[in-house]
Design a protein around this nucleic acid. Structure first.
Lengths: 240, 240
DNA sequence: CGAAGGCAATGGTCCTACCTTTCCGCGCCG
DNA sequence: CGGCGCGGAAAGGTAGGACCATTGCCTTCG
Protein backbone atom coordinates (compact mmCIF):
# COMPACT_ATOMS: atom_id res chain seq x y z
CA UNK A 1 0.00 0.00 0.00
CA UNK A 2 2.40 2.65 -1.17
CA UNK A 3 -0.04 5.51 -1.26
CA UNK A 4 -1.29 4.66 2.19
CA UNK A 5 2.25 4.84 3.48
CA UNK A 6 2.53 8.30 2.04
CA UNK A 7 0.03 9.52 4.55
CA UNK A 8 -3.39 8.13 3.67
CA UNK A 9 -3.93 11.20 1.58
CA UNK A 10 -7.01 9.87 -0.11
CA UNK A 11 -10.24 9.21 1.64
CA UNK A 12 -11.10 6.29 -0.60
CA UNK A 13 -7.82 4.61 0.23
CA UNK A 14 -8.49 4.94 3.91
CA UNK A 15 -11.78 3.13 3.36
CA UNK A 16 -10.12 0.45 1.22
CA UNK A 17 -7.49 -0.08 3.86
CA UNK A 18 -10.02 -0.34 6.65
CA UNK A 19 -12.13 -2.89 4.84
CA UNK A 20 -9.11 -4.97 3.89
CA UNK A 21 -7.98 -4.91 7.48
CA UNK A 22 -11.38 -5.96 8.76
CA UNK A 23 -11.37 -8.85 6.32
CA UNK A 24 -7.89 -10.13 7.13
CA UNK A 25 -8.67 -9.84 10.82
CA UNK A 26 -11.74 -11.96 10.34
CA UNK A 27 -14.18 -9.29 11.41
CA UNK A 28 -15.73 -9.27 7.94
CA UNK A 29 -16.58 -12.69 6.62
CA UNK A 30 -17.68 -13.94 3.23
CA UNK A 31 -21.30 -13.10 2.55
CA UNK A 32 -21.38 -10.11 4.84
CA UNK A 33 -22.99 -7.04 3.40
CA UNK A 34 -21.25 -3.71 3.68
CA UNK A 35 -23.27 -0.59 4.43
CA UNK A 36 -25.02 1.00 1.48
CA UNK A 37 -23.00 3.68 -0.26
CA UNK A 38 -25.09 6.50 1.18
CA UNK A 39 -24.92 5.03 4.67
CA UNK A 40 -21.17 4.45 4.46
CA UNK A 41 -20.66 8.00 3.24
CA UNK A 42 -22.58 9.25 6.25
CA UNK A 43 -20.48 7.12 8.63
CA UNK A 44 -17.19 8.32 7.17
CA UNK A 45 -18.49 11.86 6.86
CA UNK A 46 -17.61 11.85 3.21
CA UNK A 47 -19.36 11.73 -0.13
CA UNK A 48 -20.76 8.80 -2.04
CA UNK A 49 -18.07 9.25 -4.68
CA UNK A 50 -15.24 8.36 -2.34
CA UNK A 51 -17.12 5.36 -1.02
CA UNK A 52 -17.84 4.25 -4.56
CA UNK A 53 -14.18 4.49 -5.50
CA UNK A 54 -13.27 2.31 -2.54
CA UNK A 55 -15.96 -0.26 -3.27
CA UNK A 56 -15.13 -0.37 -6.97
CA UNK A 57 -11.43 -0.81 -6.31
CA UNK A 58 -12.11 -3.71 -3.98
CA UNK A 59 -14.43 -5.22 -6.54
CA UNK A 60 -11.73 -5.05 -9.20
CA UNK A 61 -9.30 -6.77 -6.86
CA UNK A 62 -11.84 -9.52 -6.25
CA UNK A 63 -12.73 -8.87 -2.65
CA UNK A 64 -16.23 -7.54 -3.11
CA UNK A 65 -19.16 -8.15 -5.36
CA UNK A 66 -21.48 -5.22 -5.98
CA UNK A 67 -25.09 -5.88 -6.85
CA UNK A 68 -27.71 -3.40 -7.92
CA UNK A 69 -31.34 -3.06 -7.10
CA UNK A 70 -33.33 -3.29 -3.90
CA UNK A 71 -31.43 -5.41 -1.41
CA UNK A 72 -28.34 -4.86 -3.50
CA UNK A 73 -25.09 -3.59 -2.10
CA UNK A 74 -21.49 -4.61 -1.63
CA UNK A 75 -20.99 -8.18 -0.45
CA UNK A 76 -17.77 -9.70 0.81
CA UNK A 77 -16.61 -12.61 -1.33
CA UNK A 78 -14.97 -15.81 -0.21
CA UNK A 79 -11.28 -15.00 -0.37
CA UNK A 80 -9.84 -17.79 -2.48
CA UNK A 81 -7.22 -17.88 -5.21
CA UNK A 82 -9.31 -15.68 -7.50
CA UNK A 83 -7.39 -12.44 -6.85
CA UNK A 84 -4.10 -14.21 -7.46
CA UNK A 85 -5.49 -15.76 -10.62
CA UNK A 86 -6.58 -12.38 -11.90
CA UNK A 87 -3.29 -10.68 -11.27
CA UNK A 88 -1.35 -13.58 -12.72
CA UNK A 89 -3.48 -13.50 -15.85
CA UNK A 90 -2.86 -9.79 -16.12
CA UNK A 91 0.89 -10.02 -15.65
CA UNK A 92 1.26 -12.98 -17.97
CA UNK A 93 -0.61 -11.02 -20.56
CA UNK A 94 -3.28 -13.58 -21.28
CA UNK A 95 -1.68 -15.07 -24.35
CA UNK A 96 1.70 -13.48 -24.49
CA UNK A 97 2.72 -16.34 -22.24
CA UNK A 98 2.58 -19.65 -24.03
CA UNK A 99 0.76 -22.66 -22.78
CA UNK A 100 4.12 -24.43 -22.80
CA UNK A 101 5.43 -22.17 -20.05
CA UNK A 102 2.35 -22.65 -17.92
CA UNK A 103 2.40 -26.42 -18.07
CA UNK A 104 6.12 -26.36 -17.50
CA UNK A 105 5.55 -24.42 -14.31
CA UNK A 106 2.99 -26.99 -13.23
CA UNK A 107 5.39 -29.78 -14.07
CA UNK A 108 7.88 -28.23 -11.76
CA UNK A 109 5.74 -27.58 -8.74
CA UNK A 110 3.21 -30.40 -8.79
CA UNK A 111 5.53 -33.32 -8.09
CA UNK A 112 6.97 -31.73 -4.92
CA UNK A 113 3.43 -30.91 -3.88
CA UNK A 114 2.43 -34.52 -4.40
CA UNK A 115 5.34 -35.65 -2.25
CA UNK A 116 4.42 -33.27 0.57
CA UNK A 117 0.80 -34.29 0.24
CA UNK A 118 1.74 -37.95 0.67
CA UNK A 119 3.69 -37.14 3.81
CA UNK A 120 0.97 -35.00 5.34
CA UNK A 121 -2.27 -36.64 4.26
CA UNK A 122 -4.64 -37.48 7.08
CA UNK A 123 -7.49 -39.88 7.11
CA UNK A 124 -10.04 -37.27 6.08
CA UNK A 125 -7.86 -36.30 3.11
CA UNK A 126 -7.76 -39.91 1.96
CA UNK A 127 -11.54 -40.03 2.14
CA UNK A 128 -11.88 -36.85 0.11
CA UNK A 129 -9.48 -38.07 -2.56
CA UNK A 130 -11.37 -41.31 -2.77
CA UNK A 131 -14.58 -39.39 -3.26
CA UNK A 132 -13.10 -37.34 -6.08
CA UNK A 133 -11.90 -40.44 -7.88
CA UNK A 134 -15.27 -42.10 -7.47
CA UNK A 135 -16.91 -39.03 -8.96
CA UNK A 136 -14.49 -39.17 -11.88
CA UNK A 137 -15.39 -42.76 -12.59
CA UNK A 138 -19.07 -41.99 -12.59
CA UNK A 139 -18.62 -39.17 -15.05
CA UNK A 140 -16.30 -41.25 -17.20
CA UNK A 141 -18.93 -44.00 -17.37
CA UNK A 142 -21.54 -41.50 -18.45
CA UNK A 143 -19.17 -40.40 -21.20
CA UNK A 144 -20.65 -36.98 -20.80
CA UNK A 145 -20.43 -33.96 -18.62
CA UNK A 146 -17.76 -31.31 -18.69
CA UNK A 147 -14.20 -32.53 -18.54
CA UNK A 148 -12.58 -29.58 -16.93
CA UNK A 149 -14.07 -29.23 -13.46
CA UNK A 150 -13.36 -32.79 -12.36
CA UNK A 151 -10.06 -33.05 -14.16
CA UNK A 152 -8.35 -30.48 -12.03
CA UNK A 153 -10.37 -31.21 -8.90
CA UNK A 154 -8.16 -34.16 -8.10
CA UNK A 155 -5.03 -32.08 -8.44
CA UNK A 156 -6.49 -29.39 -6.21
CA UNK A 157 -7.50 -31.90 -3.59
CA UNK A 158 -3.97 -33.26 -3.58
CA UNK A 159 -2.67 -29.75 -3.00
CA UNK A 160 -5.07 -29.35 -0.08
CA UNK A 161 -3.37 -32.27 1.64
CA UNK A 162 -0.21 -30.19 2.04
CA UNK A 163 -2.04 -27.82 4.39
CA UNK A 164 0.19 -25.09 3.01
CA UNK A 165 -1.96 -22.13 2.04
CA UNK A 166 0.55 -20.40 -0.25
CA UNK A 167 1.09 -23.62 -2.16
CA UNK A 168 -2.63 -24.31 -2.41
CA UNK A 169 -3.34 -20.83 -3.71
CA UNK A 170 -0.57 -20.86 -6.29
CA UNK A 171 -1.49 -24.36 -7.39
CA UNK A 172 -5.13 -23.43 -7.91
CA UNK A 173 -4.25 -20.28 -9.79
CA UNK A 174 -1.95 -22.18 -12.13
CA UNK A 175 -4.54 -24.90 -12.60
CA UNK A 176 -7.15 -22.36 -13.60
CA UNK A 177 -4.79 -20.70 -16.03
CA UNK A 178 -3.86 -23.94 -17.74
CA UNK A 179 -7.47 -25.08 -17.75
CA UNK A 180 -8.43 -22.05 -19.79
CA UNK A 181 -5.63 -22.79 -22.19
CA UNK A 182 -6.47 -26.51 -22.35
CA UNK A 183 -9.84 -25.77 -23.89
CA UNK A 184 -8.07 -26.32 -27.19
CA UNK A 185 -8.21 -30.07 -26.64
CA UNK A 186 -10.85 -31.54 -28.87
CA UNK A 187 -13.54 -33.77 -27.48
CA UNK A 188 -12.27 -37.04 -28.90
CA UNK A 189 -8.85 -36.52 -27.37
CA UNK A 190 -10.43 -35.84 -24.01
CA UNK A 191 -12.53 -38.96 -24.07
CA UNK A 192 -9.63 -41.12 -25.15
CA UNK A 193 -7.51 -39.96 -22.26
CA UNK A 194 -10.09 -39.80 -19.56
CA UNK A 195 -9.55 -43.39 -18.57
CA UNK A 196 -5.80 -42.94 -18.56
CA UNK A 197 -6.22 -39.94 -16.28
CA UNK A 198 -8.22 -41.90 -13.80
CA UNK A 199 -5.64 -44.66 -13.76
CA UNK A 200 -2.95 -42.15 -12.97
CA UNK A 201 -5.06 -40.66 -10.25
CA UNK A 202 -5.58 -44.07 -8.70
CA UNK A 203 -1.86 -44.76 -8.69
CA UNK A 204 -1.19 -41.41 -7.09
CA UNK A 205 -3.92 -42.02 -4.58
CA UNK A 206 -2.31 -45.29 -3.54
CA UNK A 207 1.03 -43.58 -3.08
CA UNK A 208 -0.53 -40.88 -0.94
CA UNK A 209 -2.49 -43.36 1.12
CA UNK A 210 0.65 -45.29 1.93
CA UNK A 211 2.49 -42.01 2.63
CA UNK A 212 5.09 -42.84 0.01
CA UNK A 213 6.38 -39.39 -0.89
CA UNK A 214 8.89 -40.41 -3.50
CA UNK A 215 6.41 -42.60 -5.31
CA UNK A 216 3.86 -39.78 -5.31
CA UNK A 217 6.51 -37.47 -6.72
CA UNK A 218 7.40 -39.85 -9.51
CA UNK A 219 3.81 -40.62 -10.46
CA UNK A 220 2.83 -36.98 -10.52
CA UNK A 221 5.87 -36.09 -12.60
CA UNK A 222 4.93 -38.69 -15.16
CA UNK A 223 1.28 -37.66 -15.10
CA UNK A 224 1.89 -33.98 -15.64
CA UNK A 225 4.46 -34.74 -18.29
CA UNK A 226 1.89 -36.81 -20.07
CA UNK A 227 -0.66 -34.03 -19.97
CA UNK A 228 1.92 -31.60 -21.28
CA UNK A 229 2.82 -33.84 -24.19
CA UNK A 230 -0.82 -34.39 -25.00
CA UNK A 231 -1.65 -30.71 -25.12
CA UNK A 232 1.44 -29.94 -27.13
CA UNK A 233 0.51 -32.50 -29.76
CA UNK A 234 -2.98 -31.14 -29.91
CA UNK A 235 -1.66 -27.64 -30.36
CA UNK A 236 0.78 -28.75 -33.05
CA UNK A 237 -1.98 -30.52 -34.94
CA UNK A 238 -4.00 -27.34 -35.02
CA UNK A 239 -1.10 -25.39 -36.36
CA UNK A 240 -0.81 -23.24 -33.21
CA UNK B 1 -13.64 -10.27 -15.93
CA UNK B 2 -16.97 -11.66 -14.87
CA UNK B 3 -18.83 -8.39 -14.91
CA UNK B 4 -17.48 -7.54 -18.31
CA UNK B 5 -18.75 -10.85 -19.61
CA UNK B 6 -22.17 -9.94 -18.32
CA UNK B 7 -22.44 -7.30 -20.97
CA UNK B 8 -20.07 -4.45 -20.12
CA UNK B 9 -22.89 -2.89 -18.18
CA UNK B 10 -20.71 -0.35 -16.49
CA UNK B 11 -18.93 2.42 -18.27
CA UNK B 12 -16.00 2.33 -15.87
CA UNK B 13 -15.49 -1.36 -16.51
CA UNK B 14 -15.44 -0.79 -20.22
CA UNK B 15 -12.65 1.71 -19.70
CA UNK B 16 -10.77 -0.66 -17.40
CA UNK B 17 -11.07 -3.43 -19.93
CA UNK B 18 -9.89 -1.26 -22.77
CA UNK B 19 -6.82 -0.06 -20.91
CA UNK B 20 -5.92 -3.57 -19.78
CA UNK B 21 -6.24 -4.76 -23.34
CA UNK B 22 -4.06 -1.98 -24.66
CA UNK B 23 -1.43 -2.87 -22.10
CA UNK B 24 -1.39 -6.61 -22.76
CA UNK B 25 -1.28 -5.93 -26.48
CA UNK B 26 1.74 -3.75 -25.98
CA UNK B 27 0.11 -0.59 -27.23
CA UNK B 28 0.50 1.01 -23.82
CA UNK B 29 3.97 0.70 -22.36
CA UNK B 30 5.42 1.45 -18.96
CA UNK B 31 5.80 5.17 -18.44
CA UNK B 32 3.11 6.15 -20.88
CA UNK B 33 0.70 8.77 -19.63
CA UNK B 34 -3.01 8.26 -19.99
CA UNK B 35 -5.25 11.16 -20.96
CA UNK B 36 -6.28 13.50 -18.16
CA UNK B 37 -9.53 12.59 -16.48
CA UNK B 38 -11.45 15.42 -18.09
CA UNK B 39 -10.01 14.62 -21.50
CA UNK B 40 -10.74 10.91 -21.14
CA UNK B 41 -14.30 11.69 -20.04
CA UNK B 42 -14.76 13.78 -23.15
CA UNK B 43 -13.41 11.01 -25.39
CA UNK B 44 -15.70 8.39 -23.87
CA UNK B 45 -18.61 10.83 -23.76
CA UNK B 46 -19.03 10.16 -20.09
CA UNK B 47 -18.43 11.86 -16.77
CA UNK B 48 -15.25 12.24 -14.81
CA UNK B 49 -16.62 9.94 -12.12
CA UNK B 50 -16.60 6.89 -14.38
CA UNK B 51 -13.10 7.65 -15.60
CA UNK B 52 -11.91 8.11 -12.05
CA UNK B 53 -13.39 4.79 -10.98
CA UNK B 54 -11.57 3.07 -13.81
CA UNK B 55 -8.25 4.76 -13.04
CA UNK B 56 -8.54 4.10 -9.34
CA UNK B 57 -9.35 0.45 -9.85
CA UNK B 58 -6.33 0.02 -12.07
CA UNK B 59 -4.21 1.80 -9.52
CA UNK B 60 -5.39 -0.55 -6.78
CA UNK B 61 -4.50 -3.52 -8.95
CA UNK B 62 -1.04 -2.10 -9.50
CA UNK B 63 -1.22 -1.21 -13.17
CA UNK B 64 -1.28 2.55 -12.87
CA UNK B 65 0.23 5.19 -10.70
CA UNK B 66 -1.74 8.41 -10.33
CA UNK B 67 0.07 11.62 -9.55
CA UNK B 68 -1.37 14.99 -8.72
CA UNK B 69 -0.37 18.46 -9.65
CA UNK B 70 0.78 20.04 -12.86
CA UNK B 71 2.08 17.41 -15.23
CA UNK B 72 0.35 14.85 -13.07
CA UNK B 73 -1.90 12.16 -14.41
CA UNK B 74 -2.20 8.42 -14.69
CA UNK B 75 1.00 6.68 -15.67
CA UNK B 76 1.38 3.07 -16.75
CA UNK B 77 3.64 1.10 -14.44
CA UNK B 78 6.12 -1.58 -15.36
CA UNK B 79 4.10 -4.77 -15.12
CA UNK B 80 6.15 -6.99 -12.85
CA UNK B 81 5.24 -9.37 -10.04
CA UNK B 82 3.84 -6.54 -7.91
CA UNK B 83 0.16 -7.25 -8.63
CA UNK B 84 0.67 -10.92 -7.84
CA UNK B 85 2.50 -10.01 -4.67
CA UNK B 86 -0.33 -7.77 -3.57
CA UNK B 87 -3.06 -10.29 -4.19
CA UNK B 88 -1.05 -13.04 -2.53
CA UNK B 89 -0.49 -10.87 0.51
CA UNK B 90 -4.20 -10.16 0.64
CA UNK B 91 -5.25 -13.77 0.28
CA UNK B 92 -2.69 -15.04 2.75
CA UNK B 93 -3.93 -12.46 5.20
CA UNK B 94 -0.57 -10.91 5.95
CA UNK B 95 0.11 -12.75 9.14
CA UNK B 96 -2.57 -15.36 9.28
CA UNK B 97 -0.16 -17.38 7.18
CA UNK B 98 2.93 -18.30 9.11
CA UNK B 99 6.43 -17.70 7.93
CA UNK B 100 6.90 -21.45 8.14
CA UNK B 101 4.43 -22.02 5.35
CA UNK B 102 6.03 -19.40 3.15
CA UNK B 103 9.54 -20.75 3.46
CA UNK B 104 8.20 -24.24 3.01
CA UNK B 105 6.67 -23.17 -0.29
CA UNK B 106 10.01 -21.72 -1.35
CA UNK B 107 11.78 -24.88 -0.30
CA UNK B 108 9.50 -26.80 -2.59
CA UNK B 109 9.73 -24.69 -5.70
CA UNK B 110 13.26 -23.30 -5.60
CA UNK B 111 15.22 -26.52 -6.10
CA UNK B 112 13.31 -27.46 -9.27
CA UNK B 113 13.80 -23.91 -10.48
CA UNK B 114 17.53 -24.20 -9.83
CA UNK B 115 17.63 -27.41 -11.84
CA UNK B 116 15.81 -25.86 -14.78
CA UNK B 117 18.05 -22.81 -14.53
CA UNK B 118 21.13 -24.97 -14.77
CA UNK B 119 19.78 -26.68 -17.88
CA UNK B 120 18.77 -23.45 -19.60
CA UNK B 121 21.41 -20.94 -18.55
CA UNK B 122 23.11 -19.15 -21.42
CA UNK B 123 26.36 -17.31 -21.46
CA UNK B 124 24.78 -13.96 -20.62
CA UNK B 125 23.02 -15.52 -17.62
CA UNK B 126 26.33 -16.82 -16.30
CA UNK B 127 27.75 -13.34 -16.59
CA UNK B 128 24.82 -11.83 -14.73
CA UNK B 129 25.07 -14.37 -11.93
CA UNK B 130 28.76 -13.71 -11.64
CA UNK B 131 28.05 -10.01 -11.34
CA UNK B 132 25.54 -10.55 -8.55
CA UNK B 133 27.97 -12.68 -6.60
CA UNK B 134 30.71 -10.10 -7.04
CA UNK B 135 28.35 -7.44 -5.72
CA UNK B 136 27.57 -9.63 -2.74
CA UNK B 137 31.23 -9.97 -1.91
CA UNK B 138 31.79 -6.25 -2.07
CA UNK B 139 28.92 -5.58 0.28
CA UNK B 140 30.03 -8.37 2.60
CA UNK B 141 33.50 -6.83 2.79
CA UNK B 142 32.00 -3.46 3.67
CA UNK B 143 30.03 -5.18 6.44
CA UNK B 144 27.36 -2.62 5.77
CA UNK B 145 24.53 -1.89 3.47
CA UNK B 146 21.10 -3.47 3.52
CA UNK B 147 21.05 -7.24 3.57
CA UNK B 148 17.76 -7.85 1.85
CA UNK B 149 18.08 -6.47 -1.66
CA UNK B 150 21.21 -8.42 -2.56
CA UNK B 151 20.24 -11.51 -0.62
CA UNK B 152 17.27 -12.32 -2.77
CA UNK B 153 18.74 -10.83 -5.93
CA UNK B 154 20.77 -13.97 -6.51
CA UNK B 155 17.70 -16.16 -6.15
CA UNK B 156 15.77 -13.97 -8.56
CA UNK B 157 18.55 -14.01 -11.08
CA UNK B 158 18.59 -17.80 -10.93
CA UNK B 159 14.87 -17.83 -11.61
CA UNK B 160 15.42 -15.57 -14.62
CA UNK B 161 17.61 -18.26 -16.15
CA UNK B 162 14.58 -20.52 -16.54
CA UNK B 163 13.07 -18.09 -19.05
CA UNK B 164 9.71 -19.17 -17.73
CA UNK B 165 7.64 -16.08 -16.95
CA UNK B 166 5.08 -17.73 -14.66
CA UNK B 167 7.85 -19.27 -12.59
CA UNK B 168 9.76 -16.01 -12.43
CA UNK B 169 6.72 -14.08 -11.31
CA UNK B 170 5.71 -16.58 -8.64
CA UNK B 171 9.27 -16.88 -7.41
CA UNK B 172 9.65 -13.12 -7.06
CA UNK B 173 6.34 -12.77 -5.28
CA UNK B 174 7.25 -15.47 -2.80
CA UNK B 175 10.69 -13.97 -2.30
CA UNK B 176 9.18 -10.59 -1.47
CA UNK B 177 6.73 -12.12 0.96
CA UNK B 178 9.41 -14.04 2.82
CA UNK B 179 11.72 -11.04 2.75
CA UNK B 180 9.15 -8.99 4.62
CA UNK B 181 8.81 -11.75 7.16
CA UNK B 182 12.58 -12.26 7.44
CA UNK B 183 13.01 -8.75 8.81
CA UNK B 184 12.81 -10.44 12.18
CA UNK B 185 16.39 -11.65 11.80
CA UNK B 186 18.61 -9.55 13.99
CA UNK B 187 21.68 -7.88 12.56
CA UNK B 188 24.28 -10.12 14.19
CA UNK B 189 22.65 -13.23 12.77
CA UNK B 190 22.66 -11.70 9.33
CA UNK B 191 26.32 -10.77 9.45
CA UNK B 192 27.29 -14.19 10.73
CA UNK B 193 25.57 -15.92 7.88
CA UNK B 194 26.38 -13.58 5.09
CA UNK B 195 29.61 -15.38 4.28
CA UNK B 196 27.87 -18.74 4.40
CA UNK B 197 25.29 -17.42 1.97
CA UNK B 198 27.88 -16.33 -0.52
CA UNK B 199 29.57 -19.72 -0.32
CA UNK B 200 26.30 -21.41 -1.13
CA UNK B 201 25.72 -19.04 -3.99
CA UNK B 202 29.14 -19.80 -5.41
CA UNK B 203 28.51 -23.52 -5.26
CA UNK B 204 25.17 -23.07 -6.97
CA UNK B 205 26.78 -20.84 -9.55
CA UNK B 206 29.31 -23.53 -10.39
CA UNK B 207 26.55 -26.10 -10.80
CA UNK B 208 24.62 -23.80 -13.11
CA UNK B 209 27.68 -22.90 -15.14
CA UNK B 210 28.44 -26.56 -15.76
CA UNK B 211 24.75 -27.18 -16.52
CA UNK B 212 24.53 -29.78 -13.79
CA UNK B 213 20.82 -29.73 -12.99
CA UNK B 214 20.85 -32.34 -10.26
CA UNK B 215 23.69 -30.68 -8.44
CA UNK B 216 21.93 -27.32 -8.64
CA UNK B 217 18.81 -28.95 -7.26
CA UNK B 218 20.66 -30.47 -4.32
CA UNK B 219 22.58 -27.32 -3.47
CA UNK B 220 19.51 -25.14 -3.61
CA UNK B 221 17.56 -27.59 -1.47
CA UNK B 222 20.26 -27.49 1.17
CA UNK B 223 20.57 -23.72 0.94
CA UNK B 224 16.89 -22.98 1.33
CA UNK B 225 16.63 -25.53 4.11
CA UNK B 226 19.42 -23.74 5.89
CA UNK B 227 17.68 -20.38 5.56
CA UNK B 228 14.48 -21.88 6.86
CA UNK B 229 16.18 -23.38 9.87
CA UNK B 230 17.93 -20.11 10.60
CA UNK B 231 14.76 -18.05 10.52
CA UNK B 232 12.92 -20.61 12.58
CA UNK B 233 15.55 -20.49 15.31
CA UNK B 234 15.48 -16.74 15.26
CA UNK B 235 11.73 -16.75 15.61
CA UNK B 236 11.85 -19.28 18.42
CA UNK B 237 14.39 -17.20 20.28
CA UNK B 238 12.11 -14.19 20.13
CA UNK B 239 9.20 -16.23 21.38
CA UNK B 240 7.45 -15.95 17.98
C1' DC C 1 21.45 36.41 -11.75
C1' DG C 2 18.71 34.21 -8.41
C1' DA C 3 14.86 33.62 -5.58
C1' DA C 4 10.04 34.29 -4.54
C1' DG C 5 5.49 34.42 -5.96
C1' DG C 6 1.75 33.74 -9.10
C1' DC C 7 -0.42 30.96 -12.95
C1' DA C 8 -2.27 27.00 -14.95
C1' DA C 9 -2.97 22.12 -15.38
C1' DT C 10 -4.39 18.11 -13.01
C1' DG C 11 -6.07 15.12 -9.61
C1' DG C 12 -9.16 14.91 -5.05
C1' DT C 13 -13.42 15.76 -2.99
C1' DC C 14 -18.04 17.11 -2.55
C1' DC C 15 -22.81 18.04 -3.94
C1' DT C 16 -26.95 17.31 -6.24
C1' DA C 17 -29.92 15.61 -9.37
C1' DC C 18 -31.62 11.98 -12.01
C1' DC C 19 -31.63 7.26 -14.26
C1' DT C 20 -31.67 2.11 -14.03
C1' DT C 21 -32.20 -2.09 -11.89
C1' DT C 22 -34.31 -5.07 -8.81
C1' DC C 23 -37.19 -6.83 -5.10
C1' DC C 24 -41.37 -6.90 -2.75
C1' DG C 25 -45.91 -6.20 -1.77
C1' DC C 26 -50.37 -4.53 -2.82
C1' DG C 27 -54.25 -4.81 -5.50
C1' DC C 28 -56.73 -6.05 -9.53
C1' DC C 29 -58.61 -9.60 -12.34
C1' DG C 30 -59.78 -14.27 -13.59
C1' DC D 1 -59.25 -17.99 -3.73
C1' DG D 2 -55.14 -17.57 -6.30
C1' DG D 3 -52.12 -15.93 -9.75
C1' DC D 4 -50.41 -12.05 -12.27
C1' DG D 5 -48.93 -7.42 -12.98
C1' DC D 6 -47.74 -2.93 -11.84
C1' DG D 7 -45.76 0.52 -9.00
C1' DG D 8 -43.11 2.04 -5.00
C1' DA D 9 -38.85 1.82 -2.48
C1' DA D 10 -34.09 0.94 -2.10
C1' DA D 11 -29.92 0.40 -3.99
C1' DG D 12 -26.30 1.28 -7.28
C1' DG D 13 -24.90 4.01 -11.95
C1' DT D 14 -24.15 8.27 -14.27
C1' DA D 15 -23.83 13.09 -15.12
C1' DG D 16 -22.11 17.69 -14.51
C1' DG D 17 -20.52 21.36 -11.89
C1' DA D 18 -17.98 23.62 -8.21
C1' DC D 19 -14.19 24.09 -5.44
C1' DC D 20 -9.78 22.62 -3.07
C1' DA D 21 -4.88 20.81 -3.15
C1' DT D 22 -0.70 19.95 -5.37
C1' DT D 23 2.93 20.79 -8.33
C1' DG D 24 5.70 22.34 -12.21
C1' DC D 25 6.69 26.35 -14.83
C1' DC D 26 7.23 31.00 -15.79
C1' DT D 27 7.28 35.63 -14.78
C1' DT D 28 8.76 39.24 -12.04
C1' DC D 29 11.20 41.63 -8.68
C1' DG D 30 15.11 42.38 -5.60
Amino acid sequence: MPAAARGQARVSEAIVHRIKKQITEGRLLAGHKLPAEREMARQFKTSRVSVREAYRSLEEVGVLRIRRGADGGAFVLQLDHQPVLRSLALVLGLGRTSHRELTEARMLIEPPIARLAALRARREDIVRLQGVIAQEKIEAARRTGPFRPTASRFHRTVADCTRNLPLIVLMNALADLTADAAAVLDVSTRARHRLKNTLFHEQLFEAIRSHDGDAAYAIMAKHVGDIQRRVRHSLARRGQ
